[in-house]
Design a protein around this nucleic acid. Structure first.
Length: 421
RNA sequence: GUGGGCGUAGCUCAGCUGGUUAGAGCACCUGGUUGUGGCCCAGGAGGCCGUGGGUUCAAGUCCCAUCGCUCACCCCA
């Protein structure tokens, strides 16, 4: 028995039943984001492993356990991209996009790869769209990016959006806060769950994310990062909130929101939908003012977000777009000796831009008619011996069941006039 | 990596406490029309019941293992 292949765990085929929804989403993304002045960028599927280690952080989960890493034939360590900010910034530096002046505003729609255990809303190959606005450190830029994320999700028809906002300050602030926080939790270590106790040493900030109800009171008394922000950080944060309020973008301050990647500074945000399962984040993003420099570029502030396409598709209310297909034509072969002519006529009609089907299975007339019906064709062009002899065709309207004889010479003019295409 | 649930026809599923040739709906094919679809009627094809082992006179059904899918933890989009 021959072994049947299956798609690799955590990967999915998009069948013709679902590709229309993907296309529709992608078109919306292209249109919406370009209107805001962002330009599309496409980066390679893989990058030097070191790029992700340097940007995401050596201790981050992505780097320690989620990357698809391999050595190519020249023993270079290669990694399938697990996130998109680093490759975009790499390209930005490599091609010196800054030289164009102003801010550099880029967007992408792309595939990512992370080796995690799949579950609802989480795959090993998945898709995101996102933007990176590179060059401005000002709060208006934060507001623009956050507004873009929020409004595009609204436009995509997602209900129950919740936007969570936080500021985690500079890298130094975070280091200082981290120390204070672990001090606090160390004092109360006996009240911590096993998971949290582990995090205490790896990354105490993550304890703030806990879902353990028993720890909630402990958390509410924990030192808040806001109190450790510098005056500049606070001013920036306040300005971002002010802008969002002005723009009528509703947000929820969430001082426990910390992100998994090391490169974030100041603003972080996340948008969730209650329509999703446990993996309820549709979109995550934040400011990363040190990344460009740490990847070898000039000191350059930047902010961006990435949104998960699979999750958006899950959260969308099922707006089955019954996009009206153009009227299709089925050229039916009624007798064997008409076969050659059927193929030729099919091609002639297609050359006129008409959407035309024919039967390559040599099925019976009846079967062809059934097929035409199954394919929701609006016209059947029937050709048999009689028609060959008289240079006519039978034209049957499959909606009204009317049938008439049409001169072959006038068929194309007739069809192009009759059909809404 | 850890835990729960589930694997029966192309799809959605039924199959009670183990007992004859394993079922339904939808989809598919043929016929009812010597050259005509949709509805209807008649018929048909399609299953090593995920895989391997065990218990038993007898296993889709019980036990063990294994693989796969799925949900959750971890983490994140």
């Amino acid at each position: 028995m021959i072994h049947k292949f299956q798609s690799v765990k955590g990967t999915k085929d998009l069948l013709p039943t679902e590709t229309p929804r993907w296309r529709e989403l992608e078109e919306t993304v292209h249109k919406f984001i370009s209107r805001w002045g962002y330009l599309e960028i496409r980066t390679p599927a893989f990058e030097p492993t070191e790029l992700f280690v340097r940007s995401s952080g050596e201790g981050s989960d992505i780097v320690t356990k989620q990357m698809y890493t391999f050595e190519d034939q020249s023993q270079t360590s290669i990694t399938l991209k697990p996130e998109l900010t680093a490759p975009v910034i790499r390209a930005y530096i490599q091609h010196n996009l800054a030289k164009q002046g102003g801010t550099t505003k880029l967007y992408y729609i792309d595939s990512l790869y992370r080796q995690e255990r799949p579950q609802a809303g989480r795959l090993r190959q998945f898709h995101q769209f996102g933007v990176e606005a590179i060059g401005s450190s000002n709060p208006e830029q934060d507001a623009e990016v956050i507004a873009l994320a929020y409004l595009i999700l609204l436009d995509l028809g997602i209900e129950d959006l919740e936007l969570y906002l936080n500021s985690i300050g500079s890298v130094e602030t975070r280091k200082r806060y981290r120390k204070i926080l672990s001090g606090y939790f160390l004092e109360h270590e006996h009240q911590l769950s096993n998971v949290s106790r582990e995090r205490l040493h790896k990354n105490p900030l993550r304890i703030l994310d806990t879902k353990d109800k028993k720890e909630q009171t402990l958390l509410s008394n924990a030192p808040k990062i806001y109190d450790y922000l510098t005056q500049d950080d606070q001013d920036h944060y306040e300005a971002v909130k002010h802008h969002l309020t002005e723009l009528e973008i509703p947000f929820i301050q969430h001082d426990l929101l910390v992100r998994g990647l090391d490169y974030y500074t100041r603003t972080t945000f996340e948008i969730t939908s209650s329509k999703l399962g446990a993996q309820n984040a549709l979109c995550g993003g934040g400011r990363y003012d040190n990344l460009v420099e740490s990847l070898g570029g000039p000191p350059t502030p930047a902010i961006g977000f990435a949104a998960g396409i699979e999750r958006i598709l899950m959260a969308q209310k099922d707006t089955r777009t019954g996009e009206d297909k153009p009227d299709r034509i089925y050229v039916v072969c009624a007798t064997e000796n008409a076969r050659d002519f059927v193929l030729k006529l099919t091609m002639d009609l297609r050359k006129q831009g008409l959407p035309v089907e024919f039967d390559a299975l040599r099925r019976s007339l009846k079967a062809q008619m059934r097929d035409a019906n199954r394919l929701k064709c609006t016209f059947a062009v029937i050709i048999g011996e009689k028609e060959l002899d008289s240079e006519t065709i039978q034209l049957k309207n499959l909606t009204t069941s009317e049938q008439k004889t049409v001169q072959l010479g006038t068929l194309i003019t007739y069809l192009t006039k009759e059909l809404k295409l």
